[in-house]
């Protein structure tokens, strides 16, 4: 069930340069949350006409909390970062289809590929996959060392490969180059990716010729989050109609979606 409920900010912390984590306490359909699902957060200022779509990075149905991690990309997110503990914000959710957890079992080799603000949904996914007994490898890229976050979470779930564009930490280069540099290549059952378009295209190029199942979580500029405004569309090829990222995604089969 979809609700718009008030949540209270119980923690707000800067994790890295311009990257914040906010933990919110409130009621909604926790049972309906899968890794990859998102919420639409209403900013407490009437000048903002659009809610912000934010992926759920962690979710605790017992404590009734959700964790969102976001980067300051504009005035709206800056406003969110300045909201103090105790502030009430309205949350529409849970939204989106989430990552497929089909074909995952004890010992299944899975690869998570992420960049920048694409990491939050992968953080929840990594934890769930580890609980299922999968062998989780994660490859993540950042612009520079001061922007790194999520290391502890990913290391807890398995192997972490880290790249920075400027080489200030880990491999120097992007995630695609990092993966290409690996001498031993595992045979992954599933690859899950979230991040900039270039990263998702790289994952397609690399894994479409293989037997690995590809799940890509897309970002889309959206107004409603529920399939009403049809702003956040993506093509899945000739003979098909546009799909809405918000309701038919944000996770798509990497072999179908055209970026």
């Amino acid at each position: 069930m979809l609700t718009k409920n008030d949540f209270q900010i119980i923690e707000q912390q800067e994790l890295a340069h311009d990257i914040y984590r906010v933990i919110l306490h409130g009621e909604f359909n926790y049972a309906g949350v899968k890794p990859g699902c998102f919420v639409m957060l209403k900013l407490p200022d009437e000048a903002y006409q659009l809610r912000r779509p934010l992926a759920i990075a962690a979710c605790d149905s017992v404590q009734k909390t959700i964790t969102l991690i976001y980067r300051i990309v504009g005035d709206g997110m800056r406003l969110l970062s300045k909201l103090a503990v105790g502030t009430i914000v309205n949350i529409l959710g849970p939204l989106g289809n989430g990552f497929s957890l089909e074909n995952v079992d004890v010992g299944t080799e899975v690869l998570l590929v992420g960049g920048g603000t694409g990491l939050p949904p992968l953080m929840m996914l990594a934890q769930v996959l580890k609980e299922k007994g999968c062998r989780v490898s994660t490859a993540v890229g950042f612009r520079t060392a001061s922007m790194i976050f999520g290391e502890t979470e990913f290391e807890r779930s398995g192997q972490l490969l880290l790249a920075t564009d400027d080489g200030s930490r880990g491999f120097k280069g992007n995630v695609g180059e990092l993966l290409a540099s690996q001498t031993t290549v595992s045979k992954y059952t599933n690859v899950y990716a979230c991040g900039p378009e270039g990263l998702l295209k790289m994952v397609q190029t690399r894994f479409v010729p293989t037997e690995t199942a590809i799940y890509l979580s897309l970002e889309g500029r959206m107004a409603c989050g529920v399939g009403a405004c049809e702003a956040c569309v993506v093509s899945t090829g000739e003979g098909t109609f546009n799909k809405c990222v918000c309701v038919e995604g944000p996770v798509f089969n990497g072999r179908e979606v055209i970026l």
Binding site: Q49, L50, G76, R221, M222, A223, A231, V233
Partner: peptide
Amino acid sequence: VPRIAETKSGVLN
């Protein structure tokens, strides 16, 4: 896309 852009007290679509 993009098909939507926010502006103060309004939305462009």
